[in-house]
């Protein structure tokens, strides 16, 4: 997925520069995307039809995709019954909240670290230690503290991204050329104004990139959390599929994760272009 994203990011610039070539280029991207997946799905279908692949473990696309689209991917019975859409909504909500909190606090802590020397000495060791902890490691702790459910999942997402985002925010602020701050100071700008009009916009490209990376981290963390005890959401759906030996359900979950992850990244790319408007105008 990472290499695919890099390719797409590179293509966006020339596309904007010469508009006439934009449509064919976009079409080419879509064509290859469809072809690649068409081939893979075709081979999968062929493999199960010919008996190379066990269709009880790897049900063919001709069964999985209708199952996915028909809304048959349900978990539980009666009042506890939860459909695929519900699971997706639950999972996305957790990411949205966890990511927003993580981003907001990481930028705030990053700013404090950059602004105040004692804050750098005090917070930097903590942030650098939290950053490499696997989000999965927080799951038992989260469940013990806040119990099963949304708060635990949000906490896991938050812990997954906060450390690395704070470190990246500090790096982004530190990378803003010192001349900008000096110029703003001599132009009579106060410290707060320098933060909002100079340092924040100056660090925004770095912050946007780190947010896009963190989105992947959050996506992985929430699914892991849902598989490891937080009993709802898309990750839980897959676990249920395993426990009921419903491989169509498992495959549906996996396809949904891939598709939504891809779409989320596209959306982030659009937001990035919108927020960094001045970078598009060269």
């Amino acid at each position: 997925m990472a290499s695919l994203d890099l390719g797409a990011a590179k293509e966006t610039r020339p596309m904007r520069r010469d508009k006439p070539r934009r449509l064919p280029r976009a079409l080419t991207t879509v064509f290859w995307f469809a072809l690649a997946w068409g081939l893979l799905i075709g081979l999968w279908e062929l493999g199960t039809a010919q008996g190379f692949l066990n269709d009880r473990i790897l049900p063919p696309p001709s069964e999985t995709i209708p199952f996915l689209l028909s809304g048959g991917a349900n978990v539980g019975f009666g009042v506890q019954k939860a459909g695929l859409i519900d699971a997706v909504v639950v999972t996305l909500g957790r990411i949205a909240i966890g990511l927003s909190c993580g981003l907001g606090l990481a930028v705030l802590v990053g700013a404090l670290i950059v602004e105040f020397v004692p804050a750098r000495r005090l917070f930097m060791p903590i942030v650098q230690t939290i950053a490499p902890i696997s989000p999965v490691a927080w799951i038992p702790f989260a469940i013990a503290i806040v119990g099963i459910g949304d708060p635990a999942a949000i906490f896991v997402v938050f812990m997954a991204i906060f450390g690395s985002m704070a470190v990246a925010a500090v790096a982004a602020f530190d990378a803003v050329p010192g001349e900008y701050v000096k110029v703003a100071t001599t132009l009579g700008a106060g410290r707060l104004r320098i933060w909002f009009r100079v340092l924040l916009p100056g660090a925004l490209p770095g912050i946007m990139t780190m947010t896009r990376m963190s989105l992947f981290g959050a996506w992985m963390a929430v699914l892991a959390g849902e598989m490891a005890g937080i009993n709802s959401g898309l990750g839980y759906l897959i676990m249920m599929g395993q426990q009921m030996y419903n491989m169509k359900l498992v495959m549906s979950g996996i396809i949904t994760i891939g598709a939504i992850g891809f779409l989320l990244d596209r959306v982030m790319l659009l937001i990035q272009h919108r927020v960094l408007w001045w970078e598009r105008r060269t």
């Binding site: 050329p177 001349e179 900008y180 000096k182 110029v183 703003a184 001599t186 132009l187 009579g188 700008a189 106060g190 104004r193 009009r197 100079v198 916009p201 100056g202 925004l204 001045w278 970078e279």
Partner: peptide
């Protein structure tokens, strides 16, 4: 007192007018 460097004088995220206005707003 005004200061001018070789580069990184104008803020890339503001237009030319925005850059000049930034200084004026400080007053």
């Amino acid at each position: 007192t005004a200061l001018l460097f070789q580069q990184h004088n104008l803020f890339p995220w503001m237009t030319a007018a925005g850059n000049v206005a930034f200084a004026l707003e400080n007053t």
